[in-house]
Amino acid sequence: MSQDKNRRGPSQRRRELSDHVLAEGSVSASDLAERFGVSLMTIYRDIDELEREGILRKFRGGVTVQPSGVFESNVAFRKKTMRAEKEAVAAKAAALVEPGMSVMVDDSTTALELARLLPGVEPLTVVTNFLEVLNLLSDERGLHLMALGGDYDRLHDSFLGVPCVEAVEALRVDLCFVSTSSVYGNHAYHQEQRIVAVKRAMLKAADRSVLMIDHSKLGRTALHRLAPLSTFDLVVIDDRTPPDVLRSLDESGVPYEIAPTGA
């Protein structure tokens, strides 16, 4: 067993290391060294490389894929979290979609849950930069699918950058659905400036925009301000949202709807 571990090349070990941290959420460096049969120095070199690639982030004595104010978890981890809440929020938001509309969805995992419901509302034009949504809907004959190009980012499984922003700016859609990683006070935030640029362009390209968030995003900080909540025509949140947040939305005049999770 240990001989097999030692025969792993650095690339294979790093892939297995990232998969293990993805499954666990957070792991100490000493546990990783023991698991992979290598020295702490080797593990820290692996961690440094994976952090440089944006796959995970270091903390004192270990590594994690959990988000922070400057680090967004990769799409594989985000797909695993808050599934019931995201499904509930997506179902509530999908009720706004009517046959014949043009709909733009971002590269959030909440938007992915929404996309799963769109084949039931045909005919429909769906515009997205999220490769997983494109693959999900590519065989749906009742949907006109439009891909937003740009620089492919494998951690988000989406297309970003100036070409993507310009592609968005050339369009006008009926509805835009976005999510984000943080809502603090009366503003939505995100850790990455390039993601913010695409989301802002999407909001400007839509007649109506909807922010879909689950309660885990509330009170969390992130580096870049996306937009005031008042920018959105509707905020959809799950029923585990604290009452004080709902009061704040009421006082700010932000329109919102609560999605029941059935929990």
Rank of each mutant, 00 (worst) to 15 (best):
K217P: 10
A201C: 00
V21Q: 08
V196P: 07
V183P: 01
E257K: 06
V165F: 08
D239N: 10
P243K: 05
H20I: 10
F177A: 03
K5A: 14
V198N: 01
L175N: 10
V63A: 10
M146H: 14
L143S: 04
A205C: 11
V89K: 11
I237E: 04
H224Q: 11
L22G: 07
I55V: 15
F36M: 02
R220F: 09
S209H: 02
V162I: 13
T110L: 03
Q3F: 13
E122A: 15
D207R: 14
A29G: 13
R60I: 10
T64V: 07
L136W: 02
F130E: 08
D153V: 02
S11T: 15
E169S: 11
P67Q: 03
D233H: 09
A188Q: 04
V126K: 02
A206F: 04
A259S: 03
V198D: 05
P255M: 04
E251C: 03
L223G: 05
V254W: 00
L175Q: 03
T81W: 12
F232C: 00
T241H: 06
D107L: 11
V162G: 11
V162F: 13
A227E: 15
E113P: 05
T180G: 08
V173M: 10
H144S: 13
V178R: 00
R220K: 09
G150L: 08
T221V: 15
Y256L: 00
D239C: 02
F36V: 05
G9L: 07
R154N: 13
R8F: 13
G142I: 10
I258H: 07
G262K: 02
T231Y: 09
A167H: 06
V27Q: 01
L137M: 07
H156S: 15
G100R: 05
R60L: 12
D157S: 13
G9Q: 09
G69P: 08
A205I: 03
L246T: 14
Q66Y: 14
A95L: 12
V65S: 00
G142E: 07
D157Y: 08
S158M: 04
L246M: 07
L114W: 04
P99F: 03
V127I: 14
D139Q: 14
V178S: 00
S26M: 11
S248H: 13
S138L: 12
V210L: 06
L96I: 04
T109S: 14
G150K: 05
L218H: 00
D107K: 09
R141L: 11
A227Y: 09
D48K: 15
L246K: 12
G149D: 07
R247C: 10
R200D: 01
I195G: 00
S73V: 00
R116V: 07
V162L: 13
R141Q: 11
E51S: 04
L229R: 05
G100Y: 00
S2H: 12
V126Q: 06
D31C: 01
I47A: 01
P67I: 01
S181I: 03
L246Q: 09
G54E: 01
V210P: 03
S11Y: 12
R13K: 08
F59L: 07
V165I: 05
T125K: 01
F36E: 04
P255R: 13
I237Y: 08
D4K: 11
E169H: 01
Q12H: 10
A147G: 05
F59R: 11
D106Q: 09
